[in-house]
Amino acid sequence: MIDIEAKSEALSSALERHLGVKGKSLAQQVKRAGHRLPRRLRAQAQLVAEADALRGNPRLLRQLGHERVVQAFSDVSAHLAGIDRAEARRGRILSILAAIAFNLILLFTALVVIGRLRGAI
């Protein structure tokens, strides 16, 4: 039998470390992670969270399937291990700066066109 509690704790700490998602339970963390996880991996993380919630009831836990839970845990863990939080932050900052630069170029262009039409330039 798999150690669900250890796997859920490991996944919880990985979500917090790599995505910055905090929560009282693994299910809440998965919900807060939202679209930062791909759809398939979000479903697999939810499966591990369900297994964590059902760990007190072995009959219901068996319905989830031992292999499915282990595979889901390994897939989500592998994906999270590849995420660099600092690189993601840099990407978001560069995206914001690019949008600001584009808007400034549009504003400058609009001012030049208006100036030309009025004959000021």
Rank of each mutant, 00 (worst) to 15 (best):
E5H: 03
L60S: 02
L80M: 05
L47A: 06
V112H: 13
G91I: 04
L107T: 15
F108H: 15
I105D: 13
E87L: 14
A99H: 11
D84L: 04
P38C: 11
R59V: 15
R62C: 06
R85I: 00
F73I: 00
K7V: 13
A86S: 10
G20M: 02
S74I: 05
R59F: 14
I96M: 10
A120N: 07
V112G: 08
G115P: 10
R39L: 14
K7F: 08
A86F: 04
F108S: 15
I96N: 13
S8Y: 03
R40Q: 13
Q44V: 02
A27D: 02
A53L: 07
N57A: 00
L11M: 04
V70N: 13
V69H: 00
A6G: 03
R92A: 13
I105Y: 14
A10S: 12
K31N: 13
G91Y: 11
G20Y: 07
E16D: 12
L15H: 06
A78R: 14
H79Q: 07
R39T: 15
L117V: 12
L26I: 00
E9D: 10
F102N: 04
K7C: 12
A14N: 00
L111Q: 11
L104P: 10
L54Y: 04
F108M: 15
G65K: 09
R36H: 08
I105G: 12
L94W: 07
R36I: 05
L94N: 13
R62V: 11
H35D: 14
A72P: 07
G23K: 05
G91Q: 13
E87V: 06
L61D: 06
V69L: 08
K7W: 12
A110S: 13
R42Q: 10
R17F: 09
Q63G: 01
G65T: 05
A14I: 04
L117K: 05
F108Q: 13
I121L: 15
R62G: 12
N103C: 13
P58E: 04
S13H: 07
H66D: 15
P58Y: 07
N103T: 03
A88T: 11
A14H: 02
L117H: 06
G34Q: 03
E16Q: 04
V30F: 01
G65M: 08
A45F: 03
K24S: 12
A98P: 08
P58C: 02
N103R: 13
S13C: 09
G65P: 10
A43D: 12
L61T: 04
